[in-house]
Design a protein around this nucleic acid. Structure first.
Length: 120
DNA sequence: CCCTTGACTTAGA
DNA sequence: GTCTAAGCCAAGG
């Protein structure tokens, strides 16, 4: 068979972003800039934004995606909602209402950033 | 095909 | 520390 069909539905940038977000473990968060860096196409942060907007929020943990500095991006559209969802997963916030990326930023599926447990 | 939008990011004043 | 401007990519009208 020969797949003479070349117009196959290649992996669209959007799906790539969604797949990445889906891989984010519960209790962790990622930033738009981080995602854009993971995309081989080097999709710009703004491109990631588009992906999220077009993404099925009901089937995608969009709430695990935050802006730089751990700030809630959807605060303009869904004020308070994202924070609530994250807190429900055990994510802590700063006094400014930002996520503590130092502890909840997901570095990747493989890189297990071992956070020392000397303190805790 | 051209123009506008968009939940961002970074840098400069 | 806060504000403004530019960059960048993709999809929709």
């Amino acid at each position: 068979m020969a797949a003479k069909k070349k117009k196959d539905t290649g992996p669209r940038p959007f799906e790539r972003v969604w797949a990445l977000v889906l891989r984010v473990p519960r209790g962790k968060v990622v930033t738009y800039g981080w995602i854009s860096q993971q995309i081989e196409k080097r999709l710009t942060p703004i491109g990631v934004v588009w992906a999220m907007r077009a993404a099925p929020s009901d089937a995608l943990p969009w709430h695990r995606v935050v802006g730089a500095n751990g700030r809630i991006a959807t605060e303009r559209e869904l004020p308070g909602l994202q924070r609530k969802l994250l807190e429900r997963e055990g994510v802590a916030f700063d006094r400014d209402g930002n996520v503590d990326l130092a502890r909840f930023a997901w570095t990747g599926p493989r890189r297990t950033k071992r956070r020392r447990s000397t303190s805790r």
